[in-house]
Write a protein that binds this DNA or RNA. Structure first.
Lengths: 198, 198
DNA sequence: ACTATACGGAACAGAGCTGTTCCGTTCCAT
DNA sequence: ATGGAACGGAACAGCTCTGTTCCGTATAGT
């Protein structure tokens, strides 16, 4: 006996959902914290009734989960000829996304308040961190397979050193003067001499 | 005509100052945000009258400035024979301080809410970031002087790649399994092959 | 002794956020 | 056309934090 959902009645305006997500991104990048941000402020900034927010999301956590989804774009594929090319391209992608001021602020706020939003933190790790790591691991391992990279490296550690500077920039909010192509090339240049097979 | 401060009357209990600072560190490392943390909560957790807090600090910002001072220890000197030794030692020091859970949480919260506390952020940069940078720059430059390090490197960029992984760990709060000596050695091993003069 | 300050405790008004409940209106499927 | 649901707007009690002001007591300098 399943209740077939009766879809009678007025439909929810999808623009309201989007407006709320946009409002959160705007407000967080303007300095608000996730716990400090109130539904009143979000509703006002989104130009939406506070009622409509409660109708959609039971808790602020649920709203933030949708915000996280909104800034989570899938990673492009890599088809470069060399591991070095793929690594540089991947790093450039990460830097590009770090330059997105609103997304960066959201992630920084999320990390700072991970304790207050465990589910949010879990999904951040699962949907954003893990795929990026796996992508980099794959690039490094393929580079080892082709003999381009020394086989004795610790891919997890090398990945950490590669993306560390980028994450640190995101964490400190100092993302000015970060040209994706230029910076990724410099990082690759610096690290590759250390991990390239002689 | 200088007013000699009349020091009559009961003296302030220095234990109250310390208790407030400790309370902030405890509460922030327990997940509180700087804007969200209230003087009520701080006073309760410190076992101190809310009155005493207002007596000492006009605003929360002022209190946080004292907290920042409390976690800011001067850097030790470097007297190792090689730049590589000094670099490893310096990195190990940074990692050790990153492992201090309470200080790390405080700095992470500070960065996430830099917009709300500009003066706090300024002093963080001036009293913590700048000295560390200068120390590393000095190590790298001396290494260049001795011929240990390639002269064509960008010390600022190399420093960023060196400390990036450590800062990223601090930013994400994942400081478990970070042995200072072991980790600093690995980072130095990885990077040095890229910057060492052949 | 006298004076000045710190202390804990309590109270207070003002402000903001929450979660819920009304209302009248607008839309949409059946 | 009718019923069901979303919408904006308003109100509400309950809670927390702020900043200030009292009070009585404790402590230190002159």
């Amino acid at each position: 006996m399943e209740m077939t959902k009766t879809l009678a009645g007025r439909r929810r305006d999808p623009r309201t959902d989007a407006a709320a997500v946009e409002a959160v991104l705007d407000l967080v990048s303007a300095g608000a914290t996730l716990t400090g941000l109130s539904l009143v402020t979000i509703a006002e900034h989104a130009g939406v009734s506070r009622n409509s927010l409660y109708r959609r999301w039971k808790t602020k956590d649920d709203l933030y989960l949708d915000v996280l989804d909104a800034i989570n774009k899938p990673l492009p594929d890599f088809d470069g000829p060399t591991a070095r090319d793929n690594l540089t391209t991947h790093l450039a992608t990460l830097i590009e996304r770090t330059l997105d001021q609103r997304a960066g602020c959201m992630l920084r706020a999320l990390l700072a308040e991970a304790g207050a939003f465990p589910e949010l933190h879990r999904r951040y790790f699962e949907q954003i961190v893990a795929p990026r790591r796996e992508a980099m691991y794959g690039i490094l391992r393929r580079g080892i397979g082709t003999g381009e990279i020394r086989p004795d490296i610790d891919v997890a550690f090398v990945n950490e050193v590669l993306v560390g500077p980028v994450l640190a920039r995101m964490g400190s909010g100092a993302t000015e003067g970060l040209d994706p192509k230029e910076t990724s090339r410099r990082i690759a240049d610096l690290i590759f001499s250390g991990i390239a097979a002689r």
